[in-house]
């Protein structure tokens, strides 16, 4: 997947679990919690991405997610 495709997927996942929190352009250095995405929404977002890609991420990788850039990297390293 290209970075643009991954970004689109992440935005879609966030829209599904926390509508209105992000626009089409992600600020890769912004922390999820600063964008109003709490830990519960963050895990729900991960669930949506996993379902879409038919993958399961390891918990220790999820523990390293702080920023939107981390989410993109997580998807890149698992697809």
């Amino acid at each position: 997947m290209t970075e643009a495709e991954i970004t689109k997927l992440v935005v879609k996942a966030i829209d599904e679990v926390a509508p209105g929190k992000v626009s089409g352009d992600l600020n890769l250095t912004q922390r999820l919690r600063d964008a109003g995405i709490d830990s519960v929404a963050s895990m729900e977002m991960v669930g949506v991405i996993e379902e879409e890609l038919e993958v399961t991420f390891a918990d220790e990788e999820l523990a390293r997610i702080n920023t939107f850039g981390d989410v993109i990297k997580l998807v890149q390293s698992n697809t």
């Binding site: 830990s39 519960v40 895990m43 729900e44 991960v46 669930g47 996993e50 918990d59």
Partner: peptide, 28 residues
């Protein structure tokens, strides 16, 4: 073993941690 990916299960596990067994956490 694995963090839930849906709101209800996350809240239920959180409830166990805060209300039934406060101050503890299962291990990996």
């Amino acid at each position: 073993n694995r963090v839930p990916r849906n709101k209800k299960d996350l809240h239920d596990i959180g409830f166990i941690t805060t209300d039934i067994f406060p101050g503890g956490l299962s291990l990996r």
